[in-house]
Nucleic acid binder design. Structure first.
Lengths: 229, 229
DNA sequence: CGGAGCTTGTGATACCGGTCACAAAGTCGG
DNA sequence: CCGACTTTGTGACCGGTATCACAAGCTCCG
C-alpha cells in the first residue's frame, strides 16, 4: 500500500491552511520569527487556538510542547500538504471585466499559480493581448490544456455560458475549476468545482444589514410606545 | 414585543437563499413557469431536495402539498427576507485591478447593489474617474458614508492596508464589509465581515489536485511493482 | 365524493466541526 | 536535578447541519 495520508484532513481544516500559511509568511519574512505558539498563530489567523492545534495535528505532530511550532518547518509542511511546492498552470475562460482583472492579479503568480492561457469566444477580443497573454478562441481549449499541462480552470464568463465552459474544461481533462460566474455548474464527481459568487456575498451581507435595521426600527417603535405609555 | 422573525434562520440557509433566488429568476423570466417543486428547485440549485424544503420552511410554509411552490410568491418572500426589496448603497475602497473590475461589474447593480463611491489613497488615481464615478481620497470616507448613506463597504486594497481600511469603515458607521484583500480583518462583533479570498480558493483546489496526482502516482508505482512481481 | 398520486413539512437520526479542559511533554532557572 | 511554568496534543462534549423517512395535506380524476 503506497504512501497514504496519515489521517484524512477535514475539509474545514484544508480551508484554513492557506490562512495559516499567509500568517506564517508574515511572521517569517516580516519579523524573522523562529517559533510561534498556537495562541499567536490563532490571533493572526483570526481563529481559536485549540482549532489551530487540532488543524496542525492533522499534518502530524510538528510542535514542541512548552515552545511552539518551528515557523520554517511548519511553512514547509503546509506548503507540501497544499501541493504548493510546485507551480500550477491555470487557464482563464472569459475575459470580460472580471477575467481581465484576474489575468493581471498579482496574488496568483505570487503564490505559484501561473496564468498560462486566456480564452473567449467574442471575435472582438480573440487575438488581442491581455497582461502579456494572447486571448485564444475557446475552441483551442483542449489543445492548449494538453500542450501547457493546464490543471486548473477559471470560469469568468456570463452565467449562461458557465455550464458549457465547465463541460468543455472537464472534457479537456481539467479536474479543478474555480467558477466566478453566478450560475451552478454541475460536473462529474471527479471534478472539483469551487464557486466564488460576488453577488451572493453581498446578498448575505444584505440579510444581516437588513436585520440590523429591522431591529433598530423595532426598538424605535418600542421607544415611541414607551413614551406614550 | 415588536415584529420578531418567526424562527431564527440558520446561517447555512441564508447562504443558500441567493442561489434559490437566482434559480427562481431563471424559471420566472426564462420559461415563465408558475410553480416549482422542491425537487426541481433542488436540481437547479445543485442541492438536496429535503434541504430545499427545510430551508424554505424557515421562511414560513409557502408551499402547497401535491403542487409545489408558487414561483412569484417565493421570489417575493426570499427577496424580502434577504432585504433586497431596497437598493443598498455600496462603497469600494481600493481601485487597483480588482477594485476597478468590481466597480464595473454589472452583476452588482442588477441585484440592487448601487456602487456610490470609490476611494483610494494613491494621488495618481484620486481625482480620476472610473465607471462614471470619481475616485475620492480615503480621508473623505466618513463624510461620504454619511452623505450617501453607505451601508456596505468593499475592501479591495493590498493586504497591508486592509485592517486599517476596515477600521475606518467601521468608524464611519459601516456595519457590513466584504473583504477581498488576502488578510484577516478583525472588527467589533457588531460589524459583519465576509471574506472572499481568490488565492485561498486556488490553494484549496491545489490541495485536491495534488491529492489526485498523488493517488495517480501511487497507482502507477503499484502497477510497476505488480509488473515485476 | 372517494381514492390514487404527488409533494410538502418536519420529527428523528447521524455526522461534522468547534470549544473546553487537561494530561503529557517539553523548557528554564536555581 | 528538581520544581515551576509553558504549550502541545487530544479525548469529551456540544451545537449546528445534512439526510432520511413518513405522516399530513392537496389535487385530480372517475
Amino acid at each position: 500500500m503506497a504512501v497514504m495520508p496519515s489521517r484524512p484532513i477535514p475539509e474545514a481544516t484544508v480551508a484554513r491552511l492557506p490562512v495559516y500559511l499567509r500568517s506564517l509568511l508574515d511572521l517569517a519574512e516580516g519579523r524573522g520569527q523562529l517559533t510561534v505558539s498556537s495562541e499567536e498563530l490563532a490571533s493572526l489567523a483570526g481563529v481559536n487556538a485549540a482549532k489551530v492545534r487540532k488543524d496542525l495535528s492533522y499534518l502530524g505532530s510538528y510542535g514542541t510542547r512548552g515552545v511552539g511550532y518551528d515557523v520554517e518547518y511548519l511553512l514547509y509542511q503546509i506548503t507540501r500538504e497544499l501541493g504548493l511546492t510546485q507551480d500550477w498552470p491555470v487557464a482563464i475562460v472569459g475575459v470580460g471585466n472580471l477575467g481581465r482583472a484576474l489575468a493581471s492579479y498579482k496574488g496568483f503568480s505570487e503564490r505559484g499559480f501561473r496564468i498560462m492561457a486566456l480564452f473567449d469566444v467574442d471575435p472582438n477580443v480573440v487575438g488581442t493581448e491581455i497582461a502579456g497573454l494572447p486571448v485564444r478562441h475557446l475552441d483551442d481549449l483542449k489543445e492548449a490544456v494538453t500542450d501547457d499541462g493546464i490543471s486548473i480552470g477559471v470560469i469568468a464568463t456570463p452565467p449562461a455560458a458557465a455550464q458549457e465552459v465547465g463541460e468543455r474544461l472537464a472534457d479537456a481533462g481539467v479536474k479543478s475549476i474555480l467558477n466566478f460566474a453566478p450560475a451552478v455548474v454541475s460536473l462529474p464527481p471527479d471534478v472539483t468545482v469551487r464557486k466564488v459568487d460576488l453577488s451572493t456575498e453581498l446578498q448575505i451581507l444584505s440579510f444581516f444589514q437588513q436585520r440590523i435595521q429591522a431591529i433598530a426600527a423595532a426598538r424605535e417603535a418600542n421607544r415611541r410606545l414607551g413614551a406614550t405609555r
